[in-house]
Nucleic acid binder design. Structure first.
Lengths: 232, 232
DNA sequence: TAGATTGTTAATCGATTAACAATC
DNA sequence: TAGATTGTTAATCGATTAACAATC
């Protein structure tokens, strides 16, 4: 097994692979919790809901962390993926918009357990300011800049109504935030270098509705295949 | 072409295109709200955050709904896309798991406005049953089958903890639900013909963290080694 | 060694994009 | 007609997958 050389740091990992690494990480954690110390690519692929060829190809972008004829050491691979993603470090996060969704996000346990620390909850509504949600006091949106500076926040979460989203994004970018997770149903314009990921409930439902409509009326079952190539 | 009901109902629309149609729909609605009656592919693409070649290619899978030299009639195109997706009809939806997230989903206004009607909120916890959330009484999970049958539900939303998700999915599939939107951080195994879409907050954050990490340093990966050091 | 399983290759498939002929 | 803009083509790019040589 080779150690990482300095040139490894330049390797480009395809986006599709990056998006699956957290899935593998979670599957490895599940295996570890079951007391499993070693797994084959077949085992892990099955736990992650992908095929094993894809899994091995994905892992090959990180390095050679398996042993031919044997498989992967669960804890070792888990650590390597965690390090690659960056979840071995602490990520301060600010949530803007503390409505129903913001509440749910603030209480979401998956944050803490993966190195994401909610350092502030902000809302423009004075009626919400001062309330305590998930052990954190809601502060005025105006304190965004101070919050980001003080806590070295790099990731912002937008859970406001759509109309406010672009303004919030602009302010976030101005304060130096370079990664945004947007729950508002709006297209955000941001400068290059700023990453935006979008979580959009009604879009997901509409995609399901499209396929559902085709199943219902379509008559031809052979044409309908799950988007992810489903397990079973 | 294989034998199938009518006209061009069997043309296959690429998944990537299907996923963007709801975005176009929203952008068209925004344009209509501004009183804009006609738009070019450039206008619409810009409002949707994609490039115009991609937009035109996507729309070409639906048919020829534009006019060369002129552009698209906003209302007409909006209707065509809505019909294609299926949001001109009513989709009864059941939400299982009424914790913080389930609450937020139940209150989500985007449901109703797009033809999705929450017909039931179910939870296995007796303490929640009977409470009213967003005007709907929470019912016991056991009533799933009856609910689905009575209301002809085709889409189920899972907002339970991860451990319960597969069981809920199995029960949903058994009752005849063929589309599932899963918010639980778990990989679901479902039979062919059942569509699952996943919304996973911590995965989105981890993807952002990966890119953030690369922006921040690019420098020295050795710096952050977890307390558990190495392959622990 | 014999069996098992990785890491990689190469073929295929699907998505994106620029360019432009068609045509309003 | 002249200008504008669609719908389509074809080239390119990226992702998936089966197959298998490498090797434990």
């Amino acid at each position: 097994m080779t150690a990482r050389s300095s040139t490894d740091a330049n390797r480009v990992i395809p986006e599709a692979t990056v998006a699956r690494l957290p899935v593998y990480l979670r599957a490895l954690t599940a295996l570890a919790d079951q007391g499993i110390r070693t797994c084959s690519s077949e085992d892990l692929a099955s736990a992650a809901g992908v095929n094993s060829a894809k899994l091995r190809k994905d892992l090959s972008y990180l390095g050679s962390y398996g042993t031919r004829g044997v498989g992967y050491d669960v804890d070792y691979l888990r650590y390597q993926i965690a390090r690659e993603i960056g979840v071995t470090q602490d990520w301060p996060v600010v949530i803007v918009g503390i409505g129903n969704l913001g509440h749910a996000l603030a209480n979401f346990s998956g944050f803490r357990s993966r190195g994401f620390r909610v350092v502030a909850l902000l809302d423009a509504d004075p009626a919400l300011v001062g309330q305590t949600v998930a052990g954190v006091q809601v502060r005025p949106f105006d304190e965004l800049e101070e919050t980001v500076r003080t806590n070295d926040v790099a990731i912002g979460v937008i859970a406001t109504p759509a109309v406010a989203a672009q303004d919030v994004a602009d302010r976030m970018v101005a304060t130096g935030i370079t990664s945004i997770l947007n729950f508002a149903p709006a297209v955000l314009a941001v400068p290059e270098g700023v990453d935006v990921r979008k979580v959009d409930l009604s879009i997901e439902l509409q995609i399901l509705a499209y396929h559902e409509q085709r199943k219902a009326g379509g008559a031809d079952p052979a044409t309908v295949v799950g988007a992810d190539g489903g397990a079973a």
